[in-house]
Design a protein around this nucleic acid. Structure first.
Lengths: 118, 118
DNA sequence: AAAACTAGTTACGCATTGGTAAGTAGTTAC
DNA sequence: GTAACTACTTACCAATGCGTAACTAGTTTT
């Protein structure tokens, strides 16, 4: 056997597992966009997000926010004014996803330029 | 209006668009894993990938490889030996996704540690 | 000559995803 | 007092994603 790739090194498995875990937490059509929005602007109310993220419905936003909150990536805060306001922002975990979102955004912008340049 | 977030700054739109574009190209259950595998190891034949990526079926692998090739992220090379071999590797575009995959892997590994540490 | 390996393809089907539309409960502006 | 706003929820439906299993066509090993 000249080149046996059948044995997968441990660090490689961990590397891939990391990618999978991150992907799972950011799965679905809207989570990365929500995270990107909160990462850029800091704090948003529910309807602000609905208006800010074009195309999202209240149903999907609500669902995705719940998922993100369950994974401790964002925190939901009810401001007890009259009328009540609900604010969403990233937790420190959530903020640490900034690297990932930045990398995706950088790459995406460069790719788009390259594609349109042809 | 104290705090008008209704006007979305242009750079913010571009930022989010970048994230979306990247997400679209890496969508599905297997693309990031395939990219990570090729990024780590360089070159793989079809059946090597099937064995290396646990859980993937030939059908899904074939489908995802086609998608990735269509988006110019990987190249497929038929080595004209007897029997023929088919090699897959990242294009330079594909390699430039390394930052994204690295960021995802880093974050995922840290997150996993943090979750199990509790 | 049969079994096994290469690189896939095809048929089938269930389950998840995500969209539309409408409804709810409370508050407030006109 | 009625329309509109906030923060959602619910019901329903269509499309897609993804898995299983089997099959193909060529090559090679036994």
């Amino acid at each position: 056997m000249k080149n046996d790739k059948s044995k997968i090194p441990e660090h490689c498995k961990k590397y891939v597992q990391g990618v999978k875990d991150t992907q799972d937490l950011m799965s679905g059509k809207w989570k990365t966009v929500i995270i990107a929005a909160l990462y850029n602007t800091g704090k948003f109310r529910f309807m602000e997000l609905v208006r800010h993220i074009e195309g999202i419905s209240p149903k999907m936003l609500s669902q995705e926010l719940k998922d993100l909150e369950a994974n401790n990536l964002i925190k939901r805060k009810v401001v007890d004014t009259m009328p009540i306001a609900v604010e969403y922002e990233l937790t420190s975990y959530g903020k640490s996803l900034g690297n990932v979102v930045d990398a995706m955004s950088d790459w995406g912008m460069r790719y788009r330029k390259a594609v349109f340049a042809k």
